[in-house]
Simulated assay, not measured.
Amino acid sequence: MPDPRDQVRRRITGDDAALVDHLLGVILAEIPGYQALDALQLDEVRAQIRWNVGRVLDLWATGTALTDADALRFRGVGAVRARDGRPLSVILRSYRVAARAFMGYVADHFGDALTVKDMADLAQVWLEADDRLADALHEGYQAAEAWISTDRDRALSRLVGDLVLGRHAHEGAFVARLRELGVHLPQRFTVVVLHTPASVEAVLPAMSEPVMHAVIDGTGVVVAAQADAKALRLVLHRRSARCCVLADIGANEAPRWYRLAKACLDRAPADRPVLDRGDAEVIALLAGRTDADPDRAASTVLAPITTGHDHLLETLDALFEAGTAEEVAARLGVHPQTVRYRLRRITAMTGRDPRRPWDLFVLQCARLATR
């Protein structure tokens, strides 16, 4: 005679999508913290639910117990959750919520095929498994937390590296690690890439808190809420050093900008010690990178003067074709002093001095990209 427990196990595990979605729905409804998870994190939760359900049903149908390998798996899960910054209390509660929902689901769908003892044994197996796995989860979580707290500087340096090298599966993972390390970085932040790592310590006073830094492949990288470009120029000028300031970027954008900044520092002339996103975008266009975008390059460089400043754009266009203030004035029919005033306005608004060859080149590339 077929074993009813084995039949139930086969029916559930053979098509468990409905049960997994049901348990996830209950967790989301009862635990607000899970509602903030993104799509990738929810897929991880689904996978964990599927494993738990299958393992418990196996133990129940075969009369066996959890193994050391099962406990080791959950110790690893605990360590990962500590690094992600998901609170342990919330994780443990999710297992309790899932247990209650699981037993209700089995009773509703398979109660007629099972005896009272079958249901009692299933509940006992889940509780015993949950007890042992919770201990393993807690051990892994505590061990990871201890490592983080005792070696915070290295953890911060690794976080910077993971950020700019694109090692985070999603922005939520980066935010969670920031939270666990006690770093209150805004959603949009600044990354400064230095041509020589020896300048990292020197530029830290020009960065606003919080500040994290690392040396990656011979390049210095500093991540902070904001950077004082004027202070950076002074520090770097004294050291004959250079950097690229990537302001107002998010975690998902950081790897692309880091690659562009490195290319920019390698190729842009040395007469501009502090490069920025506009320089990097122009370098991307010149290099023919697949992620280059003419409209984005033009907007990044010219945004301050594209609305309500047609006279400044007109002056720039004339400068590209002429060369001197007198020649520009003759083309536009204005006084040379007016041209010089407009050029000073362009410098103040864009941060680029048209009298400098590189700045003029970047302005011209951006202007051409809009046509």
Rank of each mutant, 00 (worst) to 15 (best):
E139P: 05
Y95M: 03
V245D: 02
R96S: 15
A318T: 06
V191A: 01
Q124A: 11
T150C: 07
I27M: 13
R238A: 12
A39F: 10
V223N: 04
M207A: 10
R296T: 15
L40H: 05
A176H: 07
G333F: 05
E139C: 08
Q7N: 08
L24A: 06
Y105P: 07
D135I: 07
H138D: 10
F320H: 10
L92T: 14
A198N: 01
A136I: 01
R345F: 03
D291W: 15
V215P: 05
D151H: 14
E314R: 15
A79L: 04
A144P: 01
A214Q: 06
L66T: 14
E281Q: 11
D135W: 04
D3T: 00
L313C: 09
A17V: 03
Y258M: 02
A229E: 15
Y341E: 02
L72C: 02
E326I: 11
H311Q: 09
L40A: 12
W60Q: 07
A280R: 14
E321A: 05
A348Y: 04
Y258G: 02
I249C: 00
A369E: 08
D271H: 07
A120E: 15
A113V: 13
E326V: 11
F102R: 05
R242V: 12
A71I: 10
V193G: 04
N52G: 10
I216G: 04
Q226I: 01
P4T: 08
Q48G: 13
D121R: 15
E314I: 05
T347C: 04
R50P: 10
R352H: 10
G166Y: 03
G308V: 12
E30W: 00
D359L: 01
L246W: 00
L19V: 09
F74K: 05
E321P: 02
M349K: 15
D21A: 09
R81I: 11
G111N: 14
A287S: 08
R9P: 07
V328N: 05
L302T: 03
N252V: 03
W358L: 01
W60H: 07
L185C: 09
T350E: 04
L137Q: 13
